[in-house]
Design a protein around this nucleic acid. Structure first.
Length: 831
RNA sequence: GCCGAAGUGGCGGAACAGGCAGACGCGCACGACUCAAAAUCGUGUUCCCUCCGGGAAUGAGGGUUCGAUUCCCUCCUUCGGCACCA
């Protein structure tokens, strides 16, 4: 470190001082977060990366602005924890294993080492002693332990179901991991297929209703909406229809008010009662239809422009409200995966049923009459899906049906009450949300800690046998559709925890989203081998105060994360309903041509090169400046020059004190400087709080320009100048931690470290303007500006405006019709 | 089709709470320094006109208001979620 009597290095050389400070901060454990009851805590969490190989600009974009904010919070007096780790299980490691014949573990840990090194160049305040890596046995031991807790609580179960399968990645996927209309694998973009398989699930649907509530948490609207859509809650009724074959069919409907118009029923081809309902004469056609439906993919079956198909079963049901005998059909537009897999068809009021009825000549009976038009089942061209008055519905005729959903609709409410009274139906709610399928037929994941015994079926392994370790001696990685673990000669051999006889291990591994559902807890005590986390740490740090990350996880990680927390709460492991109070999502950094950055396109911006050229501080500042953080933007490689220039100008101003001009600063200059400093401080404080990073930088740029002018005017050396310098460096510290430290400690010779200083307080009276310029509008157009004192009364402002020469000209001696004075803002004159 | 977010100069973007649209920066132009270049510094930079001055303009059109980028209605475009979900 530079001693006082040494000659200070005035050349700007971040490549020298950045690593120097990084090393010192680390040696001094400056960012170590330990429990301190005397200070309020702040847990700043940012989504942990996958160790893909190299840190790219997207990582910097995701991590450095939240780091700046965490630093700001720390200067505000919070005890801040800002941990980092790796979501280290996952497919790319297996891809590398296949390609280069290297164990996924080796590939993963090499990448982690490289990325940690790159992360250290960011100068972030990560507490590396809290680092958690999900592929470490000490970590996945507890991932497995959580699985067992969920299993014991009945929240993990095994079932055979028609599941989504990615033919490229050779594994099953959760519903959330199948995207868009084309039903493609979220990871690789390959269209998924359906397979009938027995798999492990988490009972996420148990929390469907609770997951719809976001009370008290500050999350972006679009994430809440996205999750709400995903869960897809529908209110309605379930109704039981008796059939002539003897069995009853239960259906779900959101429109029980249209029950009287149900003129037929439709069952999904997979419905278990289809064969019983089908009469012998129709058995052949129904069976052929079922076979054909089974052959089609979901995309083919569910294509919305597809013409309706279906066959008659020969069976009949009785409409419970009017005792009409109605035919039962089988059609693939009814899905087994939603509701009960059977519907009542109301062709007059449902477009899909209408289409079907027209095609097959089925009866159409209108039961909701819209205002003004008389519906006729024989001639109508579309279903009437909106409001009207109930008709053809016996005692309910005349009841108004609104466009409201659920019980808010008087017709629906009345009919549900009637159904419940008669015992033929009840109020019901359905969700499109599905349980979380967590089995993956892949190697590089946490093994599911279950064994299967001939006699005792599936059982969890006792805690002392955890972790179930992944073997190192695997040589064949090729995906076969079954986990490579299955082909290991001995790995799957285990013993039944009940009888001690031979039992076979589950060879599937867990969805990596399981690992990331609890990493925020592991950061609390990453090396604890007695428990997943330390209770004292939990009590102090949780919940997470601010969570930042990409919005692509809206319906995946962010939903799993919430589900997990609620499930743990019900097991008494965590407290409170939500893991994090505040969520903010950064946008995406696109390539300069507006396309997505990707390794394969070779358009990824490498931060390392920029750090070498400009220094980390400049890269950090530019990342905050070049776009609205929560929105993202295409990268602009020229733009960084402006930020680099600013950083150099900061350096020059604070190191080159010789250039003060001879004339001493006037009181006016000093007062103005002080005002600008406190105005900027106010703005920067607000912007940090609100994640508005781009305007933090522009405010600092403006203040710097003002400070250069103040220097010209002789302000250097005055108390106002010294205050300005101090506050400027404090505001700079979260953004550009290295240069701030270098200037603070070495050039201003203030006590190390700038990062342990207290954030400055706004002096409101100093920030206030003395005089203000008030625009004067005549008929809505600005014609003049008058200068008045900041606390001028309405009357004074009015007079100033009306007596202005320019305004007089516009008035032409006439009396204005109206004069509006917005105090401190503007005068509007109407003539 | 339903739900949500967003449309402001050549570009990224700014504008507290309905009150001067375009802060800050990139780019561009001109100038200073220099033998020259880079760097640096300075000036200008929404568009149009008959340029002391005036007019238009925040996706389009309408409305409320003395006054609208901001509030309301209709529409267009882009992005994201859902979608034969009963």
């Amino acid at each position: 470190m530079t001693k006082k009597n040494e000659i200070k290095d005035k050349s700007f050389n971040p490549q020298a001082f950045e690593p120097k400070w990084q090393a010192k901060w680390e040696a001094d454990k400056l960012y170590r977060a330990v429990i301190d009851e005397s200070r309020p805590k702040h847990y700043a969490l940012t989504m942990l990366p996958y160790p893909s190989g190299d840190l790219h600009i997207g990582h910097w974009y995701a991590m450095t602005p939240p780091d700046a904010r965490a630093r700001f919070k720390r200067m505000q007096g919070y005890n801040v924890m800002f941990p980092m780790g790796f979501d280290a299980f996952g497919l790319p490691a297996e891809g590398a294993a296949i390609k280069h014949n290297i164990h996924p573990k080796i590939w993963t840990y090499q990448n982690i080492e490289r990325m940690e090194k790159q992360m250290r160049t960011m100068g972030a305040m990560f507490d590396w002693e809290r680092e958690a890596i999900s592929s470490d046995p000490e970590y996945y031991k507890w991932t497995q332990w959580f699985f067992i807790q969920l299993y014991k609580k009945g929240l993990a179960y095994r079932k055979k179901a028609s599941v989504d399968w990615c033919p490229k990645d050779n594994t099953t996927l959760a519903r959330e991991q199948v995207k868009g209309e084309d039903r493609v694998c979220d990871r690789c973009g390959t269209p998924v297929i359906k397979k009938e398989l027995e798999q492990w699930f988490f009972k996420a649907t148990k929390y469907a209703d609770e997951l719809l509530h976001f009370d008290g948490i500050d999350w972006p609207e679009f994430i809440k909406v996205s999750q709400t859509n995903w869960i897809g809650r529908s209110e309605g009724a379930s109704v039981i229809f008796k059939t002539e074959a003897g069995d009853s069919i239960e259906i779900f409907t959101t429109r029980p008010d249209t029950l009287w118009g149900a003129t037929f029923m439709v069952m999904s081809p997979e419905h278990p009662l289809v064969d019983k309902i089908t009469t012998p004469e129709n058995a052949q056609t129904v069976s052929e239809y079922k076979d054909q439906a089974a052959k089609q993919t979901d995309i083919q079956r569910e294509a919305k422009d597809k013409e309706k198909t279906g066959v008659f079963t020969g069976g009949y049901a009785i409409n419970p409200v009017n005792d009409e005998r109605i035919p039962i059909w089988v059609a693939d537009y009814v899905l087994m995966s939603y509701g009960t897999g059977a519907i009542m068809a109301v062709p007059a009021h449902d477009e899909r049923d209408f289409e079907f009825a027209r095609k097959f000549g089925l009866k159409i009976v209108p039961v909701i009459q819209p205002d003004g038009v008389e519906l006729n089942g024989d001639t109508m061209e579309h279903a009437h899906e909106h409001e009207g008055v109930m008709i053809n519905s016996g005692q309910f005729n005349g009841t108004p049906a609104t466009n409201d959903k659920g019980l808010k609709n008087p017709a629906i409410k009345t009919v549900i009450e009637y159904l419940e009274e008669k015992g033929i139906g009840k109020r019901d709610v359905n969700y499109r949300y599905r349980d979380w399928l967590i089995s993956r037929q892949r190697f590089w994941g946490a093994p599911i800690p279950m064994v299967h015994c001939e006699k005792h079926g599936w059982n969890p392994l006792p805690d002392e046998q955890l972790p179930v370790l992944l073997p190192d001696d695997i040589t064949e990685w090729k995906p076969t559709g079954e986990s490579p673990l299955k082909f290991h000669p001995t790995w799957k051999d285990s013993t039944c925890p009940i009888c001690g006889e031979y039992a076979m291990r589950e060879t599937d591994t867990m969805d990596t989203f399981m690992c990331s559902s609890w990493y925020h807890l592991r950061y609390l005590s990453p090396h604890n081998d007695k428990a997943p986390f330390d209770e004292a740490e939990y009590n102090y740090w949780m919940p997470v105060d601010t969570y930042t990350g990409g919005s692509e996880h809206a319906n995946m990680h962010l939903l799993y994360f919430r589900f997990f927390h609620k499930a743990l709460r019900d097991m008494g492991i965590t407290e409170g309903g939500e893991p994090t109070m505040q969520l903010r999502n950064q946008g995406m950094v696109l390539a300069e041509d507006n396309s997505k950055m990707s390794k394969s396109k070779g358009n990824v911006v490498a931060p390392d090169v920029l750090v070498q050229k400009y220094g980390a501080d400049t890269v950090r500042a530019y990342i905050m400046f070049f776009a609205r953080w929560q929105q993202g933007a295409p990268w602009d490689s020229h733009g960084i020059e402006g930020t680099a220039r600013w950083i150099r100008r900061v350096w020059t101003l604070f190191t080159d004190d010789a250039s003060n001009s001879g004339t001493p600063a006037s009181d006016e200059v000093k007062k103005n400087l002080r005002r600008r400093v406190h105005q900027t401080l106010k703005r920067v404080t607000y912007d940090f709080e609100h994640f508005e990073f781009n305007t933090i930088i522009s405010s600092l740029m403006e203040l710097l320009n003002d400070m250069y002018k103040a220097r010209e005017a002789g302000a250097v050396g005055t108390p106002e100048w010294n205050e300005a310098t101090e506050i400027y460096i404090k505001m700079l510290a979260p953004v550009a931690p290295h240069i701030a430290e270098e200037l603070w400690t070495n050039h201003l010779e203030k006590p190390y470290s700038i990062h342990q200083q207290k954030w400055a307080t706004v002096d409101e009276s100093a920030a206030k303007d003395d005089t203000i310029e008030i625009p004067v509008q005549v008929n809505g157009k600005v014609r003049d500006k008058v200068i008045v004192s900041a606390d001028a009364s309405e009357e004074e402002i009015r007079n100033a405006a009306l007596t202005s020469e320019t305004i007089q000209k516009y008035l032409e001696g006439k009396e204005p019709k109206k004069v509006i004075v917005a105090k401190g803002r503007l005068v509007s004159i109407v003539i």
